[in-house]
Design a protein around this nucleic acid. Structure first.
Lengths: 280, 280
DNA sequence: CTATCTTAATAATATATTGTTAATAACAAA
DNA sequence: TTTGTTATTAACAATATATTATTAAGATAG
């Protein structure tokens, strides 16, 4: 009987005798949190801007587990794909769009998050601009739908609704000690009727979006080519969950946009100039 | 011959007949980027503060693949563990510490990142304060060592060195189109002598740290209980890679620290007051 | 013991950024 | 023409920032 000594093997020899079942194996899926802005077709001409809502794309599950429940669009990662490629493939499948804003969000791996077996979910955050929301809400795969999402802090709830179906996800602010700090953040507090842990993923996606619009330009991935400053401000207000003052807001975003000379039409008040995004 | 119809099955029945090999299976590992502050034992009394460096903990691989190369501390995720639990276990193993700051960093899944088989790596960022750096550098497992890390932008290189061994990781600023934006960030440009893709993980960890010290209090997880403002400022300068002006810095961090009335000793100049972190 | 070196800490000033209120502009509809 | 409504800018106050200069408090060399 010999004792295993790695130095008696070349790396090539090692790889030839390697048993892929030496360590536990599991499956890896991608779930995508796709945000857009729900512009009511009735009010598409910006007559009632207050009707703008943050929207998320969900699909109704057509197989076990969680048959018939609403879930995030997702799928398994192919053996020859990178994670980004898999996410892009799923986005292309569900939306028909290939050049979306996309970033890795978080990886979820609780042992029992999937009743079939140990399945890890790597989630992605993606943004679609509201003009394409209009286009693709009709072309969508059967059993896909945009749901409005709203984080209502004072009620401790995340409201997800498409008119027919409404999910009220109970949430709470949890404080966790991390080293020398106490970090407080919103967490899902009770099981909802969504599939898997997708309620938690949606919440994390919304919080990531909230964090990032303050320090980056990602909002413009939600905006159409032309937009008014008020429209843009309302998107910020929806995502941040608070009202902003117009003059301060204008100053802050002034650097990121340019005038087009075009104006909105057919309002009962002074028309607003339309701007477009310009990266510096 | 019957066509599969999920509605003919209850979820329980489905789970009983579920084939866990229906989808590709792979392994999941955790790799931890552990930062600390390297205080030279010779200068522990703050005589030469300029000797402070950002440090990272690496282990020398004792098995194939990449036998003998330096790598991030890591391990496979057990079947009954959450990802956080696995990361905490690995941190406890390597450092003997149980209450470290820790956050999930990013998940790496390129198909050939591991020569054995498809292994996904979920990485974690962790911070150890410099007083424990002193303590544990001696207690460390054999073949573990602290390496200084420095991102030298003007040379396009990430320098990782423990005195004996030095890795110069070539990096470049890459621009990628993400939706309507062009996002520019540092990427590893050429293979280094570190194991796996760990050079890229270290770079991402450093960039995450750089981003987060500007908007959060995580630096204090790198600081000892008592520290002078100049010391703190130098940590910021190391991580951000740029000099800061003292009065502005003092004002900015004033809210996060409190006076202790204690002063540093044995300097050739006015002693500095020692402060401590206080979360608000 | 005094002058000098060194870093700590704050004062003082200019400049820039924000928050807020108020005024004016431009349209539709009454 | 007046009124309602939203857009846009002006004006000012309040804060915050960057920068320079000054003072403080020790060690050390002579």
């Amino acid at each position: 009987m010999t004792i295993y000594n790695p130095h008696n093997l070349t790396e090539e020899e090692f790889l030839q005798q390697y048993d892929p079942n030496a360590f536990d194996r599991l499956s890896l899926s991608i779930d995508t949190v796709i945000f857009s802005i729900n512009v009511d077709p009735q009010t598409i001409n910006y007559r009632k801007l207050d009707d703008q809502k943050l929207a998320i794309l969900l699909v109704k599950r057509s197989d076990h587990p969680f048959l018939g429940r609403w879930a995030l669009p997702g799928g398994f990662v192919g053996m020859q794909e990178t994670l980004d490629e898999a996410a892009r493939r799923i986005l292309q499948n569900k939306t028909g769009l290939d050049d979306l804003y996309m970033e890795q969000l978080y990886t979820y791996g609780a042992p029992n998050r999937d009743p079939r077996m140990r399945i890890i979910s790597c989630s992605y955050l993606s943004l679609i601009d509201s003009s394409k929301y209009q286009l693709h809400v009709s072309e969508l795969v059967e059993d896909s739908a945009w749901f409005e999402v709203e984080l209502i802090e004072e009620k401790g709830c995340l409201r997800i609704s498409n008119g027919e179906t409404t999910f009220l996800v109970k949430i709470e602010q949890k404080s966790v000690r991390k080293g020398k700090q106490i970090i407080t953040s919103w967490q899902v507090a009770a099981e909802s009727k969504l599939a898997f842990d997708h309620d938690a993923i949606i919440l994390d996606g919304l919080l990531r979006l909230r964090g990032k619009i303050q320090s980056t330009d990602i909002v413009f991935n939600l905006m159409p080519e032309l937009f008014s400053i008020t429209q843009l401000q309302q998107i910020y207000e929806i995502i941040l969950g608070q009202k902003l003052l117009a003059p301060a807001f204008r100053r802050k975003i002034a650097h990121t946009i340019v005038e087009t000379g075009q104006y909105s039409q057919d309002k009962g008040h002074r028309p607003s100039q339309l701007f477009t995004y310009q990266q510096r």
